[in-house]
Design a protein around this nucleic acid. Sequence first.
DNA 1: GACCAAAGGTTGTCAGGTCAACAAACGGGC
DNA 2: GCCCGTTTGTTGACCTGACAACCTTTGGTC
Lengths: 168, 168
Amino acid sequence: MSTRWLDAEELATWVRLVAVTELLPSTLDQQLRRDASLTHFEYLVLAMLSEDPGHTLQMSALAQRTNATLPRLSHVVRRLEDRGFVDRTRNSTDARATNAHLTEAGLAHLVDSAPGHVEIVREKIFDVLTPEQVTQLGAITTALLDALDPEGRMTGHTIGSHRPSSKE
Amino acid sequence: MSTRWLDAEELATWVRLVAVTELLPSTLDQQLRRDASLTHFEYLVLAMLSEDPGHTLQMSALAQRTNATLPRLSHVVRRLEDRGFVDRTRNSTDARATNAHLTEAGLAHLVDSAPGHVEIVREKIFDVLTPEQVTQLGAITTALLDALDPEGRMTGHTIGSHRPSSKE
DNA sequence: GACCAAAGGTTGTCAGGTCAACAAACGGGC
DNA sequence: GCCCGTTTGTTGACCTGACAACCTTTGGTC
């Protein structure tokens, strides 16, 4: 079967999409590293833990919510534990599982750094898009995620997730 | 000034956008590493070189087109040179500059791997979006790039670039 | 109740990226 | 025509992420 190449509009869009996926993460990382000594991914880990009522999630659940592989998460949580932001305990009902828990210090650090983070997200994303574009982007990202992660293994949208949460 | 938090729709969109910027690169990397022993970024370097008539670009120009920092590019080009896909020569008119040049072997490797790459781009992106969504995404990414890279330092849209090219 | 495949995590190793320091060449001002 | 700030690029040290190997526990199945 012969290759279906991209037409001009698709190509231009693709080039810019690649640029965005390259520049957005580094922009977020820079701001957070400078202002909060956190990677964007580390921030995400703390944020997801903070949304759980008990500030505790099993490693595999946390991996889903942060779109991470388990090895990656394991390394990051160990570092966060070294800094006192998280602690790990064995799950009592399933001895294989590990519970990651946000400490007071971790929560405090998250609360401190959230405003600066939200500010840059506004500035770089939502302030430059019209409300219609935000809605469009919502639909587009939903479609893309379905393709990129069909079973919702990472984003967990098969188990009734996607609930809006108190803050990012 | 108090923080302007994200509303529910913005938050949901943001979470998915982050997921896409996390999953898309790893998806591309996996496919290219498996089928072509190339990083997506390495592929991009070869592709950008292939679009120049002389298959040659100055390092700084190449860095712009690939949204990369110069140190990063320098390391990658050295590795590509070790594999025989690229060679580097001093620019004759400006002795500070380095010209990166795509070799025959490099071009051949690129041509071999292009169909597989385009295929996954279609499958994960354009096949799951409607034509209207592609147009919308084009406008959205343009707005985002203006915010993420105002001077167009990376993407070079101040110097009349953005020309559609023969292939990605 | 003993196996045995699968689930859940951790660890080690290696490759790739970032950042800061450095070197060399250009170019404008005087 | 000399200086000095800028541009251009490379290098090395450090850090993070990916991948594979491994270990333990669980939950059938026989």
